[in-house]
Design a protein around this nucleic acid. Structure first.
Lengths: 136, 136
DNA sequence: CTCTAACATTAGAATTATTCTAAAACAATA
DNA sequence: TATTGTTTTAGAATAATTCTAATGTTAGAG
């Protein structure tokens, strides 16, 4: 727990109880949850937990560079516990979001035609391997 | 007008009056309008025009490959009159969406780690050239 | 330790982009 | 012209997110 508190402090985030719970949940997650996913998961264990706090916390974490916001789904925002930009694959069938590890020099640029790049999002949309197999 | 009608027919879209109006608006646009932008622009000239029709039409056009849906803004969906995937730059300051013409082999892939790719969206977020200049 | 000011959390209301609904209008064809 | 399927419409419904104002918590100064 001590290490989590320090992780938040190092990023300039006041380590409140709620923020630590959200932080722990995110870092233990291998998926790309939505605010609602997080709210519902935490609500079970901690009945007094507000939606607004989840949204506020995610905003704070994103600003601090602790997590990454993914706007690849037009319905809702997803969050990636890994703040380092990387490619994603969004399956239209099962709605799963997969991390794609691929070398890409374009995505590393910090300057494009004179515009200052701060973030990058690269998403492939289609049908994932597993759903392709099930379709047959 | 005849050529626009044919363009829709060729893509398998029934060329109704409303669809032609939306098509004309989009193809004459150099920006990346939202459904609401389109609705408001058309409403002025054609008072009897429903929001639902704009949404339906954009959906039909997207499915037909006439336009491209951009989910790069968490607030609302933008539409690109150009259906060919290309990179975009989203300015956090002026909220402008710019087309980025850059060679990228990764974005051309139709198969990633066994997943079937149908669409790609690559977006850079930051501050555009113009806003950088104004900031000084 | 205690006070205080700044900050964080809460429940629920408000907002707003998008989708749904059911009726009316229209198009195409026989 | 009648029929059938498709499209459009206005407005209601939905749902993700943000706002609000009251309450609770934190951390640093004294």
């Amino acid at each position: 727990m001590e290490d989590k508190i320090n992780a938040l402090i190092e990023k300039g985030v006041v380590p409140t109880t709620q923020r630590l719970i959200v932080f722990q949940y995110l870092k233990g997650s291998k998926t790309h949850p939505t605010a609602d996913n997080i709210y519902n998961a935490l609500k079970k264990r901690h009945p007094i937990f507000s939606r607004a706090t989840v949204y506020n916390t995610l905003f704070i974490f994103k600003e601090a560079g602790i997590i990454q916001e993914l706007t690849l789904d037009k319905k809702e925002v997803h969050y990636d516990p890994n703040p380092v930009p990387h490619h994603h694959f969004y399956c239209k069938v099962c709605k799963d979001i997969l991390n794609i590890d691929i070398e890409c020099s374009v995505a590393k640029k910090r300057d494009i035609h004179g515009h200052k790049v701060e973030d990058v999002q690269s998403t492939f949309y289609g049908v994932c391997k597993r759903c392709l197999k099930n379709e047959q």
